[in-house]
Design a protein around this nucleic acid. Structure first.
Lengths: 192, 192
DNA sequence: TTTTGAAAAGGACATTTGTCCTAACCCAGA
DNA sequence: TCTGGGTTAGGACAAATGTCCTTTTCAAAA
């Protein structure tokens, strides 16, 4: 649930350290709550997270929020938009202080057209996201909340990820009330 | 819900028509029910659909089935597996008679390492799948079955896609019973 | 320490969805 | 045409989830 990609981070840092790209790549700092992308907005850059965590989420017409994933070191943000030349699919918000490299569209497009190494990194990253997203859609649809919650709590503990209850519920696509219920059930079943 | 990609099909046909690639690319025919990929199995080729429709689905441990998408002309199958060097994420089954180009792994890998045009096509295709899959996960989680069903029926009509009730239910990630109920509700609400 | 207001948790009820089983339907073969 | 078997639809009840509102908790300010 907390995704990272260290190869992509190394690749980006090498680019950043090359003075030839000073114009196109920079390192920016964000505070918790800052929006990197706004759903339906237009972006002019892609981000690669250096430190911190961002959540990537949809806001549906009924005002409900659905969190697609949590992105951390080395994860790219805004690649879909530049590849498809679309406005933003979803919003991305820092949920911790966050440091990210930003790459301006023209340079990123240039790299996509010439750099096989970047292409490879993108393909691997996107393949991973498809695996992750489709697997999660399937299990979320086909199992109970409680079952899903147990899995998520294990993962969360293993990754040392701290989430607000609101975010946890939005990640599971359920209401806070249902989350509380499932939490209580888990505790009475396996009290420790 | 019925995905196609005509640029990818053209690209593949050009490769196929080049005699230099006779060994690596072939055209194969399948009948309804044939499995192109089997979940957790190993594949040695990627497929590009020339004609017909395949469904791409997970079988969960509780034996329930979840259909991720329906693939038609120009859609690639098995690209995740070759990119990540993984066993199959899900099963892919022809639901109509189907004709597909198959490309052997070594040649496809070679293309990925050398051909920017293929890379571009793959990036666009995978971006589209991420858009599609994550959007659907969100709406499926956050709206009622009936709302989802209405949208799907409209789409289905527009695309002229014929689905069995079983497949429709598996696509929505619900039981047949719930699907029948939603269907009946829609009819009583807007009888025509 | 006490008060108070906001946030979090939980009770009660309604709605949705799933499970299980029976009823209706539909056709191939007698 | 009638019959039997299998497939599809739907009834009845149970479980899961959402909505709405009250209670509890907690911490900041008095």
């Amino acid at each position: 649930m907390l995704r990272t990609n260290h190869s992509f981070l190394s690749f980006t840092e090498e680019l950043y350290n090359n003075p030839a790209h000073k114009e196109a790549i920079s390192l920016k700092h964000y505070v918790k709550g800052d929006l990197l992308l706004k759903q339906d907005g237009r972006s002019t850059q892609v981000f690669i997270v250096k430190e911190g965590i961002a959540k990537c989420f949809f806001t549906e017409e009924n005002a409900k929020e659905y969190i697609v994933e949590f992105l951390s070191e080395g994860e790219i943000i805004g690649e879909i938009e530049v590849i498809k030349n679309n406005s933003c699919l979803c919003s991305v918000e820092a949920i911790t202080p966050l440091v990210a490299y930003t790459i301006k569209y023209p340079f990123f497009k240039h790299l996509m057209e010439t750099n096989l190494c970047l292409n490879r990194l993108l393909l691997e990253e996107m393949a991973q996201r498809i695996i992750y997203t489709s697997t999660r859609a399937s299990t979320q649809q086909l199992y109970t909340i409680e079952f899903g919650l147990k899995k998520i709590l294990e993962l969360q503990a293993r990754q040392g990820l701290k989430l607000s209850k609101d975010d946890l519920a939005a990640y599971m696509g359920v209401t806070i009330r249902s989350l509380n219920r499932a939490l209580k059930n888990l505790n009475t079943e396996c009290p420790e």
